[in-house]
Design a protein around this nucleic acid. Structure first.
Lengths: 362, 362
DNA sequence: GTTAGCACTCAGCCTCGAGGAGTGCTAACA
DNA sequence: TGTTAGCACTCCTCGAGGCTGAGTGCTAAC
């Protein structure tokens, strides 16, 4: 199925490129005129008939031109797109300039990045926030608040901060808070949330013998943070961009899609399991009917992952109509993510330097 | 302009009620048949002509029925709606049951509330998150993180927590962190962000004499939190609900509106200044063309405020088409907010009780 | 002041036909 | 054998024309 003649490939590509632009079925005559092949429309027609039989293009109705099928886009993305595209360096510059001073807090950096991506690509963008569960604990601090509550602050790799307000059986003193924090840190620092298991917890329980009454509350809080951490957080931007495209000028369809953007579970399903994906310039593209979700079958999803400390802890996806500018999305997403990773890594190292390097501009 | 005859009032109300249901212009014959007035369509027609001249209703085209104008809705909301509506108690129950265990963290409580409101009303809902600037500082804690950074945790009334990662000129020890925190607390506790002024800052600066090098970073962090606090945070839910209504079946219009929902400044403008509004069952209703923003002129906004510790620190708005069920929205919003305020107040008091009261159900 | 009746308006819907884009097929050509 | 020109055919799109029905304003009578 892959051994299409070079000419068929070229014709398919021409059809796709044209369709990307116009969103209208493309006819043999258009290809004949526009492409450098120098073939008559009749010849193109013959080839198109073959391509249709092979399932790469379809005809909306008898007397219309052809539009690419999911299978056709797939071939295009896998074989035709790869070479010859240079990522636009300007965009990376923009990112670096724009976000330089926000780089030390991963959440905000990611959100800004999502927004930037949706502005650059003109497509909706969805970022899964760092899965705190997978990152190493860096610091825990229990802050007594008042007679019946305290705050547990949890900091992990990448300076991701989470708070958890907990009810306590009695008032805590500041000193107790510190002492408890120390025990927690001694036992948990460097572990990931997932690695907090029974033996560790029992060790903590032993060491906190004197404060038995508070211990349960505390462990509950950690427990519930871990549980909450199970719950991936999503951040979607530029969702209204999808309404720009004629394929969604039907309100019912548009609405169905907008709703998917808002529903966490469905969105996660659309993005798919990212754990199996390696880090770096590793993207996954899901095209049209390859999506399981009904309303998403008119869309394509381009997903990549990001990592901190060598662990893949989240993903960034750009979502557009099947008729999306794959080349641009891939290069923009790739470029920005590369930059992002560089920044995060830089951030991790900077701490040991006397002064952050700052003169790469100009 | 207010001294409409009782009959005109009744007819206007009948027109509005009918239009709320059908979204179609309503004709004289419909009113004649449906209303208990027992008048012929010709008489209704005469009255309608008057109402039109007075600006309470308009005619989309010559041979169509009438639809209410913004002025008409305004009269309806102000004079016709008030009496006779009992808030639905069930909804309040739902809220209390649903949110009981989330009540101790204001942000999440508010978000859940927004979601609940949009589910109950089937309209989009926008919540402005607590304006931390206006709440009293309860506790500050500086947590050293690593060689070049620390986290400043700020807790205010209502247990609103904010973190701020700050770069430090050198590594902080844990003891230093505590000492600095203590000075901050001694000087700032009980103040609002707005009340942090130069004298206070200089006092802190004096007391921290020995740690001059860190002080600037720290004050910068507070400063930037204050600044960030200036930036109201919005949380919008159920925005796609708006697509249900025929008045937004035009995608361009729908898109314009969806975009307003996402843009903070425009949304704030639409909600309007809430500082002038008192707390409690105090709602403001902005109808149709009373809105300044173009895309919002087909919408009405029902806004109320919430307060903590006697200060109004945020607002909750329900946004729908002008043809919205004002009665339902007003009673739902009112009921839920009452419940919410009760909960927050309960929360504030609970701290001093040995055990939170829990047997009011069943 | 209310009502019946009538002429009038106009959006919505249907139908019909022309126009045009595009196809598939066949036959001729290099 | 691959390519091309030509032709008949399909079917979508769009606009014109006509009909219908809901609704109006006006007038005259009660």
């Amino acid at each position: 199925m892959d051994d299409l003649s070079a000419r068929k490939m070229q014709i398919l590509q021409a059809i796709i490129l044209n369709y990307l632009e116009t969103a209208e079925p493309v006819g043999s005559r258009t290809i004949s005129r526009r492409s450098p092949l120098g073939l008559s429309s009749a010849t193109i027609r013959n080839e198109m008939a073959d391509l249709e039989e092979l399932g790469f293009i379809v005809q909306p109705h008898t007397s219309a031109g052809r539009i690419p099928s999911s299978k056709g886009y797939r071939l295009y993305v896998d074989h035709l797109l790869s070479s010859g595209r240079i990522p636009d360096e300007n965009e990376a510059r923009v990112l670096t300039a724009l976000l330089a001073d926000k780089s030390h807090q991963l959440d905000t950096l990611l959100k800004e990045m999502g927004e930037l991506l949706s502005v650059l690509t003109r497509y909706p963008t969805v970022v899964t926030m760092p899965q705190i569960k997978q990152t190493k604990l860096k610091h825990l601090q229990l802050i007594p608040l008042d007679e019946r509550s305290a705050i547990l602050v949890i900091v992990t790799d990448g300076n991701i901060v989470r708070n958890h307000v907990l009810k306590t059986a009695r008032a805590l003193t500041h000193e107790e808070g510190d002492r408890l924090s120390k025990v927690l840190n001694d036992n948990l620092q460097g572990l990931t949330m997932e690695e907090i298991n029974l033996p560790v917890i029992q060790k903590i329980r032993r060491e906190l013998g004197a404060d038995q009454d508070i211990v349960t509350d505390l462990l509950d809080a950690i427990q519930s943070t871990v549980q909450y951490a199970d719950d991936v957080e999503l951040y979607a931007t530029g969702t209204t961009n999808i309404l720009d495209f004629p394929e969604f000028s039907d309100v019912t369809r548009a609405r169905a899609l907008m709703e998917v953007f808002q529903r966490k579970e469905e969105m996660l399903q659309a993005i798919g399991d990212t754990k199996t994906m390696g880090p770096g310039r590793n993207l996954r593209i899901t095209i049209g009917t390859e999506n399981e979700l009904g309303p998403m079958q008119d869309c394509s999803v381009v997903t990549t992952t990001y990592s901190v400390g060598g662990r893949t802890i989240g993903s960034v996806s750009v979502i557009g109509p099947v008729r999306m500018d794959y080349g641009k999305v891939i290069s923009t997403l790739g470029g920005i993510m590369e930059d992002f990773q560089k920044m995060v890594r830089g951030e991790e190292e900077n701490k040991f330097l006397p002064e952050p390097p700052r003169q790469d501009d100009q």
